[in-house]
Design a protein around this nucleic acid. Structure first.
Lengths: 155, 155
DNA sequence: CATTAAGTGGGGGAAAGTGGGGAATTTAGG
DNA sequence: CCTAAATTCCCCACTTTCCCCCACTTAATG
């Protein structure tokens, strides 16, 4: 389970150091291979999974009948933006420019690595801050839908 | 069960000594590992649980469908602010700067450690005082919502 | 008053994060 | 087909942060 937020630098070579505490979780049968893809509903962030975990999801999506319009669209989003990569010796990955653009990540700036349960999300620092504020406001509003939901969780 | 209030110092390194009487309760199968997170509805305090206790909650939240807006917001708040840590040899934890800011905790000042049943709450001294006064006033007011609730508890 | 436990402060070593150089591979051009 | 240029990958080295340990002060206990 991944959790917690880290700010790390996207260096001038487009590399990001994955926080050390996540690395063990990303290590699997085939070394430190991860799947990186963009958020399937257009949120300005990237998703990262251990490769073999996301592979199961991708296989399931790949087996949907392709002549169904909706399935085809889903397949397009899932597969066209899927990237397989290994952590280097220092625990970093190189983010492709397409992915960087989607998430608004600028070389040389700070980005947020956010553990979110079964996956890790990658945000620009500004976006992460903005989303957090929005979510916090929604949760503080006693009339919001999300307040009703969280009340059910019995924390 | 945790209860009672202690005032301790947040030192210049961001460390807080957990009152000794709570330490045994925080000790569990995996040493003295605790979960620290911010209040999920924005109250200016931190929550602390024995790790394995909060882990159950987190796993449950992590399994909610991520493409549902409300669940996604809840997951973001719960996971991004979750921190796992061990008490050091002196029974202290280091509070990350993000958490300190949320609760208005200033290095070098006194903070309040409040046992609150299943969890321990961490407040700045001022905030703890302010909240206590507000709660006291609400409970003294016979027309308040909280007065109606407490009457049902058969204390 | 003595002794132990609790709380506080600070220093040293290890690990994490960051930057950059050079080998290897790929791409382009003559 | 060979050479040159560019890109990618891997490794080394530096810097900073964090964690663990030691020591002191203060408070509680008998």
């Amino acid at each position: 389970m991944y959790f917690g937020t880290n700010l790390v630098k996207l260096d001038t070579k487009g590399r990001v150091a994955i926080p050390a505490r996540h690395r063990e979780g990303l290590r699997n049968s085939s070394g430190s291979r991860v799947a990186v893809t963009i958020h399937p509903q257009g949120e300005k962030c990237l998703w990262m999974y251990p490769w073999d975990e996301w592979e199961k999801t991708a296989l399931m999506v790949g087996n949907l009948p392709a002549l169904n319009k909706q399935y085809s669209q889903i397949q397009h989003i899932i597969f066209s933006n899927l990237q397989e990569m290994d952590l280097d010796g220092q625990g970093r990955i190189v983010l492709p420019s397409k992915h960087r653009e989607h998430a608004g990540l600028v070389a040389g700036e700070q980005i947020a690595i956010i553990g979110k349960g079964r996956r890790i999300e990658i945000w620009s620092q500004q976006m992460a801050q903005q989303i957090e504020e929005e979510n916090m406001l929604a949760l503080q509003d006693p009339d919001s839908e999300v307040s009703a939901e969280i009340a059910n969780l019995n924390l």
